[in-house]
Design a protein around this nucleic acid. Structure first.
Length: 306
RNA sequence: AGGCCCGUGGUGAAAUGGUAUCAUCGAGGUCUCCAAAACCUUUGUUUAUGGUUCGAAUCCAUACGGGCCUG
């Protein structure tokens, strides 16, 4: 049994609620693929509004002053998926972090195994873009000219590419062969935006600002966790609680959420889901269940290329 | 009603009479260790009608819209 159900979708599409229902129906266990819900204590802003009686794996893994990466996620998630499958249950991966999902769908890519070189990053970080371009061009002339217009101007991506090029490690892929069913939720932008705006108001009311103040007792704005939507926008307001700054912060937060939803949509489109459901229409529950059941019961032992 | 200001993309601003620019929103995209990150591309503008001028967002007139002051 190597079946794994994937539920993706931009923010505010109700992925978790659907996952909980499907977990009951198929006797599954939920695994989060969310790069922000891994932070402990960041609950309201990242939307950890999960039902208490349903356990969710891979949330609350680290403190806001620690950093985490896809490479780590990939290793932990693959291991966990296998464990759940051995227990005879269906792993249901739920999340909106496209890169995390992609690391499970395409595990054969090897560069994740090349570890970060913090000294190198420290040296390269302050350098201007054109120097980074020059360095990478010297290291790998052909690859440099194959870069697209977006990547060639992206310092982070250039630094990572230089790091890989200079690494002495031998790249090794993660071993994982799985049968995924990728269900993706979506909706028109205007529909998502109004849901987001409503949710923003609710999160403020449920005490987001108190959560931020509480976090700041132990952590700082420089910590990676606090550089997150729903938190970073309040930096200036927290240091100077002026009502006009609050309104500004909330507006920017809303726009950041809209922007996020759009980027998530483009990323998830690229992953070509097996089934995409528009949540602005009513959910076709019966046909959805039968579709998943069909996949779940189908045996791939012979006759398919895998 | 009179007087004085002001009208530039959806929003906020810039432009000695000389190619209307920038930010933001909006839209599309890139992607295998910051990914809720970082980066790229892009639609859209001088309130209207006249006038002066080789040339008007800019100067003038009128209308319309807004603000402030006075009654």
């Amino acid at each position: 049994m190597n079946k794994t159900l994937l539920i993706s979708g931009p923010t505010a599409t109700g992925k978790t609620a659907l996952a909980v229902k499907l977990a009951k129906h198929f006797s599954g266990e939920i695994i989060s693929a969310d790069s922000r819900q891994i932070y402990r204590g960041m609950d309201i802003g990242t939307g950890k509004d999960h039902p208490k009686n349903t356990p969710i794996h891979l949330i609350d893994l680290i403190n806001p002053d620690e950093s985490f990466s896809v490479a780590q996620y990939q290793v932990i998630a693959v291991k966990l998926i296998k464990e759940i499958q051995l227990r005879g249950k269906l792993p249901i991966v739920v999340g909106g972090t496209g890169q995390y999902l992609e690391s499970l769908i395409n595990p054969e890519v090897k560069t994740f195994s090349i570890r970060p070189n913090h000294l190198l990053r420290f040296i390269l970080n302050p350098l201007p873009l054109f120097i980074l371009q020059k360095v990478y061009r010297l290291l790998d002339h052909q690859a440099y000219f194959r870069l697209n217009n977006s990547d060639v101007q992206n310092p982070h991506r250039l630094i990572r590419k230089i790091e890989i090029k200079l690494s002495l490690q031998k790249p090794t892929p993660v071993n994982s062969k799985m049968d995924f069913f990728h269900l993706s939720l979506t909706a028109p932008n205007s529909y998502l935006y109004s849901r987001i705006d409503k949710r923003v108001g609710e999160r403020l009311k449920s005490g987001l600002l108190q959560e931020i103040s509480h976090l700041l007792e132990s952590f700082s704005w420089f910590d990676p966790g606090l550089n997150t939507l729903a938190y970073k926008e309040f930096k200036s307001y927290i240091s100077n609680p002026d009502p006009s700054l609050l309104k500004k912060a909330v507006d920017i937060w809303r726009f950041d959420e809209h922007h996020l939803a759009r980027r998530q949509k483009t990323y998830l489109k690229r992953l070509s889901p097996d089934l995409t459901i528009d949540i602005s229409h009513s959910l076709p529950w019966v046909s959805l269940i039968s579709r998943i059941t069909k996949w779940y019961n189908h045996n791939y032992e012979y006759g398919t290329s895998g």
